[in-house]
Amino acid sequence: MELRVRDGRAVLAGEDESGEREVDPHSLPLGADLAEALHEWAKVADAVTRTETPQDGVANALVARRGKQLAIRIATVMNSQVSYTDPVSGELVSVDAPDQPAAAPETEAAQPVPDDAPEPTPWGTGLTVSLITAAIVTVTVVSLSLGLGETSSWLALVANVLVVGGLAPSVWLGRRVPVWRWVAYGVVTGVLVAWLALILTLL
């Protein structure tokens, strides 16, 4: 089974009597949450590949990492090997289903296996990173807008739209990644503060 992206949608390809077939994840017993997560990843991956910034290593790395995580989840649910084609690099990666833990001997009392406890949220460090990122983005957007605004207000508006559009895929991917989410929060805050400052300068 192979995970692919087709026109912003996730598909799973496999072989049967009639040859290779691609099916929607919702048609397989994966669960609604996993199927929706696959399509969400495919939309972001498609947006990243369509942008004209192939040097954006952060977005590419996040797409590849998320794709591998989802492939592992599929392999776990289906209990079989799953491959996925990285939509950015085109590399084919194979993952195996995680080994199931051995059953405890009958002579021992069954002990509940706790789920992996979530790591504590590093609020201090995280908010510091968000604050620094927000300050950098705010100064950059305001300086760019004021500089271009002296030439043309429309040019400044177009520049803002392009900047936000270029950052959107990375921010969307990073919002749930433990480390990069703080950067994503800072980018969003910085853009909003910059726009508020620009509106106040026009009043």
Rank of each mutant, 00 (worst) to 15 (best):
R4E: 13
V5C: 09
V5Q: 08
G8R: 04
A10G: 07
A13C: 11
E17M: 12
E17G: 13
V23D: 02
D24G: 04
S27V: 08
L28T: 08
L28D: 09
P29Q: 05
L30S: 04
G31E: 07
A32Q: 06
A32L: 05
L34K: 06
L34I: 11
E36S: 10
A37G: 09
A37Q: 14
L38C: 06
L38I: 11
L38Y: 03
H39K: 01
W41V: 02
V44K: 03
D46V: 01
D46Y: 04
V48C: 04
T49I: 13
T49A: 15
T49N: 04
T49P: 01
E52D: 15
G57M: 12
V58H: 10
V58T: 14
A61C: 01
L62R: 09
L62Q: 13
V63H: 01
A64W: 00
A64V: 03
Q69C: 01
R73A: 15
R73N: 12
I74V: 15
I74L: 12
T76Q: 11
V77H: 04
M78N: 02
Y84S: 05
T85V: 14
P87M: 01
V88Y: 00
E91C: 01
E91Y: 01
V93N: 09
S94Q: 10
V95G: 08
A97P: 05
P98I: 10
D99F: 02
Q100V: 15
Q100Y: 12
A102R: 13
A103K: 14
A103Q: 14
P105E: 02
T107N: 12
E108G: 04
A110P: 00
P112D: 08
E119Y: 00
P122L: 10
G124V: 13
G126S: 05
L127K: 06
T128F: 05
V129Y: 00
T133W: 02
V137N: 02
V139Y: 02
V139F: 05
T140H: 03
T140P: 00
V142W: 03
S143M: 06
S143W: 02
S143A: 12
L148F: 11
T151E: 09
W154H: 14
W154M: 15
L155Y: 09
L155H: 08
L155F: 12
A159V: 12
L162R: 07
L162K: 04
G165Q: 11
S170Q: 12
V171Y: 01
W172A: 15
W172Q: 14
R175P: 02
R176Q: 13
R176I: 04
P178G: 07
P178E: 10
R181Y: 07
W182F: 13
V183N: 03
Y185L: 15
T189D: 10
V191K: 04
V193K: 07
A194P: 05
L196N: 12
A197M: 12
L198Y: 00
